[in-house]
């Protein structure tokens, strides 16, 4: 699989997940458990992504500048900062920590 193929397959599947909500009889998907699992999925996946993006280096677990970025992002979100502010602060934190030789 080339990267372009992967991108296009993922795009097609994302469209399918959206379209299915318009074409299926709601009865089929409105089971309480199905709805609960689907509602919780983003929280689980995003938490998993945060772990991998923060402490994984291939198969190794490492503590480096990224953990600093995560902590700063959490503090800012807790203080009600907006998305762009949080993202830029994450980048600046990681860059500064590396500059002073941490991570």
């Amino acid at each position: 699989m080339t990267l372009t193929t992967a991108v296009l397959v993922a795009c097609a599947l994302a469209f399918a997940t959206k379209a299915v909500g318009y074409v299926v009889p709601p009865r089929l998907v409105e089971g309480e458990r199905t709805m609960r699992v689907s509602t919780l999925l983003p929280a689980a996946l995003l938490a998993g992504l945060i772990v991998v993006q923060t402490v994984a280096d291939g198969p190794a677990l490492v503590l480096d500048a990224r953990i600093g970025a995560l902590v700063v992002a959490a503090l800012l979100l807790w203080r009600g900062a907006g998305f762009i502010t949080v993202v830029i602060a994450g980048a600046v934190t990681a860059a500064l920590l590396r500059l002073i030789g941490l991570g």
Binding site: A69, L70, A73, F83, A91, A95
Partner: peptide
């Protein structure tokens, strides 16, 4: 990595989760 873009990615995912 020099520019901290990996830190930006971490922050972005946390902001999406929050």
């Amino acid at each position: 990595a020099t520019w901290g873009l990996d830190g930006a990615a971490v922050a972005a995912f946390l902001a999406l989760l929050w």
